[in-house]
Write a protein that binds this DNA or RNA. Sequence first.
DNA 1: CAGAATCCCATTCGATACTG
DNA 2: CAGTATCGAATGGGATTCTG
Lengths: 244, 244
Amino acid sequence: MRLQIATMKLQKETDERNSSERPADRGPHGRWYADACGTAFGLEILGERWSLLIVRELMFGPRRFSDLRSALPGISAKVLTERLAGLEANGVLLRETAPEPAPVQLYGLTRWGYDAEPIIQELGRWAAASPFHDPTLPLSPVSFMLSLRTMLDHRAARDMQLVVAFTIGTAQFTATLAGGEMPVERGLPGAADLRFDAPGGPSLAAVFYGGVRPEEVGVTIHGEAARIAAFTGLFTLPPKAPQI
Amino acid sequence: MRLQIATMKLQKETDERNSSERPADRGPHGRWYADACGTAFGLEILGERWSLLIVRELMFGPRRFSDLRSALPGISAKVLTERLAGLEANGVLLRETAPEPAPVQLYGLTRWGYDAEPIIQELGRWAAASPFHDPTLPLSPVSFMLSLRTMLDHRAARDMQLVVAFTIGTAQFTATLAGGEMPVERGLPGAADLRFDAPGGPSLAAVFYGGVRPEEVGVTIHGEAARIAAFTGLFTLPPKAPQI
DNA sequence: CAGAATCCCATTCGATACTG
DNA sequence: CAGTATCGAATGGGATTCTG
């Protein structure tokens, strides 16, 4: 395998194109709609393949490279690296070298990055109304928790107050329902009113949205029966769109 | 780096995934996040380059091929054709052969397609808070009208009732403000409380969002001065996001 | 003008191998 | 673990041409 020696010489010229200056060279590649519309600009930043899904996975706190890789089935290390760099360059996320016991590299959203949640929610809400939609695919724990936030019936929840613990595979979340809002954090609470344990995202989705009985899909729920019913009743998918 | 000899044998099995049939094989290319998340599914449909901007341009009613081409600087006929076909296959738009005097081909959103407006709005609102953003680029008339709907202060507008006519280049719109909402239609109203005439989208954006005086950018406004001020005051850009 | 079909090269992607 | 390097294959999309 010697021949590679010669292969690298041509590399050089390929990247001169990038040297063209743009105010803040966002898309690593030639994207760039010549359009002042905010939507178009948003697409420059989040519209590349995978970008928005990466932001989604960071929505409940910083993650490491390998967390992201395993949460995004099919993404390659190369593309993930590129996207992280692009998002960082655009101020959506930051690379934090958290010196815990073992110094780990983390990627976390900036405040503005967290502000992208409504985009993710609107897109998800809209897509859920599509006639086609395969709910059997893998669903990351973050996706499921985000879907709960999206589908929450704020009005119906206004007078409920609950601390709910979720264990989804190895991921743990605490949802705190109060005043019609439901912030979600990573980790388990000291005391919870309800506890959901599930092997993965799809099983919980089946229980919450598909009316499947928990034991059929390996989900166990702890808590007062009435509260369980009241809680799960707060989340409903939108009706399918008409075929016109 | 020695032995790569054996590397290519495993290729085969990689593409079997694609052979699985999907209801309506959307992305002409291998897109397809293996992900049940609604957001990921939405990205399958709207996440390709140009797709969402095409939807945006159709937001106030059907348009023809050449309308779209000129509203989307840089798109090629081939790509536009492909995207229109993809969006049609996914139920976002329909191709209507309206037999007017001269039988013209029109593309119009389905009801579900129109439901995508909140996605466009959230993306635009979010992007407008970016530190980088070049407002000097071309802005299509539709983009501007959509931005008004996005930036409208619904609360402040609740008690206002106005019919406002816009002429932006050759495009004409009627905005009907009432009850804190402001639907927009193509065409001019019989009678208007206010009338804006502008050479293009950017000039109006300068007036509404940049505090520029109309005459500086070729915009003329007709109507009662107090009403003009009250109306234009309803629309404000979000504050820039902090740099963290 | 609307849009389908062809050509063709630059870019991009995913897989694999490699490195600190 | 956190990437980087490289390669083959697929895709993107601009330009051009053709048709009704």
